[in-house]
Computed example of a mutant assay.
Amino acid sequence: MPASLSERLAQPGLIVAPGVYDMVSAKIADRAGFDALYMTGFGVVASHLGYPDAGLATYSDMVGRVRQIAEGVATPLIADGDTGYGGLLNVDHTVRGYEAAGAQAIQLEDQEFPKKCGHTPSRRVIPLDEAAHKIRVAAAARSSKAFKIIARTDARTAHGLDEALRRGEAFLKAGADILFIESPETEEEMRRIGSTFDAPLLANMVEGGRTPILSRSELESLGYKIAIYPVAGLLAATAALSSLYGHLRSTGSSAAWSGELAAFSDFVRMIGFERVWDFEKRNAV
């Protein structure tokens, strides 16, 4: 069994967590041997609902996907909890629900509702006192301190790095376990974040986003403990599907497509057909 997230945080080295958004992506990532998986709100809202990550998903939409993924993988799951889906009572309910669903950490942010993807424009944050109170409620709601509270601030884009750092300090005092300063725009800003805090830091590596994509060694040297890649898998899958479907539309066949297909036999085993076949053999009449 993989180490729990709490155990892994106490060990040296960067935790690399790929973004998962459905059960196929989750099972592939689970088999790859990562230390943690990241259930991306951006990806879940896009794949499950076909909507942009703009506050349109509800707690019910998301907690069901948390439970489904957590039950289907062995790797510890970090789950995006957006703003907590409402006021303080909603935050309490969301933390309890995500923990009961099997996640090992929840990410909560300080945006106004409706929230927006952290690498898109026009994000606004709630007052600092209100945001810190949410983190205090979240920390008190969990049944075990092994369930980690990741506090995210989106203040950098609209209010500058100093305000984001100020909020980070307040969130740690309020009980956050892991700090997520969203959307630093240079490596130097990331270095300043790493030198400011004596706490586990999360880096959000979004291809095409505001933050530079750095190597494992670079992130470790800057003081980061976790690196999430929330959209890399989704973008790769989208590119592959676009290419294949375009080829099918133009030629009428998958023959001679230049991309790579997983072996059908490998896929049916990954998705669990062997258990079905064994069950049918044991219960043949």
Rank of each mutant, 00 (worst) to 15 (best):
R142A: 05
R123L: 08
A151V: 10
M270D: 11
R282I: 00
L5C: 04
V73M: 09
S144V: 07
V285P: 12
D278N: 14
E182F: 03
A29V: 02
T238S: 15
V268W: 10
Q104S: 15
R167A: 09
G81P: 01
Y98P: 02
Y21G: 02
V24T: 09
H133K: 15
K115E: 04
G13A: 10
G223L: 04
A263I: 00
G209W: 09
V63Q: 09
A255Q: 15
G87D: 15
G86C: 12
K225N: 10
K134M: 05
A139C: 09
L202K: 11
T75N: 11
G41D: 03
G175Q: 10
S183L: 05
T196F: 01
K225M: 02
A232D: 07
R192W: 00
I28G: 00
V45I: 14
Q104H: 12
S183V: 07
F279G: 05
R67G: 02
A100E: 14
V44P: 01
I78W: 06
E182I: 04
M39I: 06
R65W: 06
S4R: 11
E260M: 12
D82F: 06
E274W: 00
S47Y: 09
R152E: 12
R142T: 05
F34N: 10
A237C: 10
I193Y: 02
M190K: 01
Y21T: 04
S215A: 07
P76R: 13
A140L: 14
M23I: 12
R210F: 13
R156V: 12
D266L: 07
G41F: 01
F113L: 14
T211V: 06
G43V: 02
A46E: 05
S258G: 12
V20Y: 03
D198F: 00
V276C: 01
A103H: 05
S122C: 10
I226G: 04
E189C: 03
S122I: 02
S258R: 14
E218Y: 01
E99Y: 06
G160K: 14
E99G: 05
A54W: 03
T83W: 07
T120N: 02
S250Y: 00
I126P: 00
G208V: 06
R124A: 15
G272P: 05
I78M: 13
R282E: 15
M205H: 08
L244D: 08
Y38H: 06
D154L: 10
D129I: 07
L108R: 08
E207R: 14
E112D: 11
F113I: 15
K134D: 07
K116V: 01
A256C: 05
G223C: 04
C117Y: 03
I150E: 03
E99K: 10
S143A: 14
L14Q: 10
R269D: 12
P2S: 13
R269E: 15
T196V: 03
S250L: 12
I149W: 04
G208I: 07
L37T: 06
D198Y: 00
E71Q: 15
A70I: 03
A131E: 12
F147A: 06
A256Q: 13
G86R: 14
R249L: 11
D82T: 08
S195W: 02
A132I: 08
Y245S: 11
P230I: 09
M190H: 01
A164W: 07
K145Q: 13
I78K: 04
A227H: 08
E7G: 01
R249H: 13
G97M: 07
R152S: 09
G168A: 09
I213Q: 11
L9K: 10
